[in-house]
Every structure is written in structure tokens, then in C-alpha cells.
Computed example of a mutant assay.
Amino acid sequence: MSSEVQALLEKEVPLQSAPPKATWYHYFELTRLHKFPLGNVLVFWPAAWGLTMAARSVSLPPQTFAVETMMFLLGSTLLHSAACVLNDICDRDFDAQVERTKNRPLVTGAISVFGASVLLLCLTFASMAMLLFTNRTAALIGLIGVFPLHALYPLMKRWTNWPQAWLGLAMNWGLPVAWISVTGQINWEALPIFFLGTVCWTMVYDTMYACQDRQDDIKAGVKSTAVLFGDFVKPILVVFAIVFVLCMTIAGYLNNQGPAFFAISCGGAALHFFYQFLTWNPDVSAEGGEKFLMNHNIGYIIWGGLLLDYYLKVVA
């Protein structure tokens, strides 16, 4: 036997690593509940705002208000988790090309597409079942939030440079659903304006979030407003933030909100945005994630003013 053949026979051949074995935590990770309340609460905030504004306008009793709030918190969490599972199923090839997402369970093979699909069906039906606790009108409108809004979002980054705008419709759909759940009807003055503002808010935080992956997204062919806006991303998002605060202020005026709403909710959100943009460098990837997380605080600030407004009128 020649020395060359002997060397080939003795050469160590690396074994292909087997995909990790699926565990309950992999499924838990797929729902993003391991990061609760981060993304989940972004679905809840618009519902909480709409619920509280409507509760104040009709003087909803505190006990009923508390139950409604818990129902929307649970429903929002289930819907967000279902949307995350669907997104990971659709984007698994894209996720493999992005540094931040390359270790997600569907990318590594820890969970099969079939297993993820079963989980998706369970979460979807559970979130839809929560609509049974609302009235008929709210339930029918709520179904639009499931399909087409959340269901088609994963495809938007393939079809349009504005997937964040579609996401804004999906993430904030709880606002009209909660409002109608309390009042039984649509407030055609305040509600559409406030909803438009919340869509602008989603444009801000999700574009900031997408700035983390801009370079990877360009290579992978993923479309987003972070890529579209380019070097002008910061001033453009400042405009969206201003529109959000203006819409919220106008909606509060039309809904006869009290001073607490304008001082805490509107004023607090404006100051928070000012600090965000003052300290954000879009070219530093890590800062996109940091500023995305900061937008959760806006939810608390706005709801705090609304709760105080509700308390002063209905409880005190």
C-alpha cells in the first residue's frame, strides 16, 4: 500500500453534527415567551390604551375594567406568540443568513416544520378563542387581526420595502378591538386618528430594530424600511414619532381626556422620543436593539397617564 493511500485511510473525516434534540425549551423559545414581556407587550399596549380610553368615556366599573385588561393581556400574548412561530417558519432560510437569528430552533433543526406548525395551530386557535369573551362586533373585527394582518406579515418583507407599515396594522389592531369590546361601537372621531398614530409608532420601533440587521438583510435580499431609508433613517423616524404624538394628542382631545393624559401620556412620550433620538446612532447595530427595548417604556408612560385619567373620573 502506497504512503499516499495509507495517509488517506488514516485521515480523520469530520462527522456531520446532528441537529440538537428538541426540548420543551426549544418550543418555548419559538414562542418568544422566554423574553416575556418584550415583544408580547407591544401587542398589548395599543389594546390597553384603547381599553382604558373607552373605559373612561363610558365609566366602566373598575372590576370589569380589570377583567377586560387581563383578557386582552392573555389574548395579546397568545397572538404574538403565534405570529412569532409563523414568522420563524416562513423566514427560516433568511434567518440562517443573519447573525442575530442563525441559532433559532427551526434554523438549527432542533424543531421540525411540522412540530412548529402544530404549535402554531394551537396558539392561533387559543388566541381566536379569546375573542369569544368580547362582543360580536369586536370579535369579527378581531379576526382581521389574525388574518390577513398577522398571517401575511412574514411575506411582506419579500413583497414590499414597507413591511413595518403592515406590521403596524397588525401590532396595533387590538386598539379598535378593545375599544369596541367596551363600547360596542366605533368612535369614528378619535379611534382612527389614534390608530394611525400607533402605526407610526410601530414604524419607529421596528425600523430601529431592523437597523441591527441592515447589512445582513441587504445580502439576503430582505426588504425593510431600515434598508429603504438608508442614511436618512433617523430624520424620517423623527417625523413618524412626531406624527404619533400629535395623533395621540388629537385623539385625546376628541375623546375628552383629562389633564393627566396630556401631561403624562403625551408629554412623557414626547420627552422619551427626544431622548431616544438624541442618543441613537443608526450605524451601531447594538443600539437598534437597545432603542427597540426603550420603546416598551413608552407603553408604560402612556398607559400611566390614561390610568390616572380613568381613576380621577371613574373611581375617585
Rank of each mutant, 00 (worst) to 15 (best):
P176W: 08
L15D: 14
A22Q: 08
M208W: 14
D283M: 15
V245R: 03
W166K: 07
K313A: 14
I298W: 12
N281I: 12
F36M: 00
S17P: 15
F244V: 04
L278F: 15
C200Y: 08
S112A: 03
G304A: 05
F28N: 10
C200L: 02
W179F: 13
M128G: 02
E290H: 06
K35W: 02
K35A: 06
Q185T: 12
L169N: 03
N161H: 15
R92L: 07
L293V: 13
V113E: 14
L106W: 00
V67M: 13
N256W: 01
G145D: 05
A22G: 10
F28V: 10
V227E: 01
D217P: 04
M128A: 04
V182F: 09
K157P: 02
F125Q: 11
L306Y: 01
D91T: 00
K102S: 11
V238Q: 15
S76Y: 03
G289Q: 04
V5Q: 13
N295D: 00
V233L: 12
L254F: 10
P235Q: 05
G109F: 11
S2F: 08
F125A: 09
A55I: 06
W166T: 06
L271N: 02
P19C: 13
F133Q: 09
V43W: 04
V199F: 02
G230H: 10
K102D: 06
V182A: 01
A286Y: 08
L254I: 10
W173S: 05
Y300R: 03
G267F: 04
L30S: 09
L132I: 07
N255C: 00
L15E: 15
V239D: 08
S57D: 08
L155H: 04
V107F: 02
Q97R: 03
A226I: 14
A269E: 13
E12P: 11
G168Y: 06
K234F: 08
V233Y: 14
Q6H: 15
A286G: 13
F147I: 10
F274K: 14
C266A: 13
Y310P: 02
A138Q: 06
D217V: 00
C122N: 15
A151S: 14
L73V: 05
R136G: 05
H26D: 08
L254M: 10
G288A: 04
N295V: 04
I193D: 08
M128H: 06
L143W: 10
W24E: 10
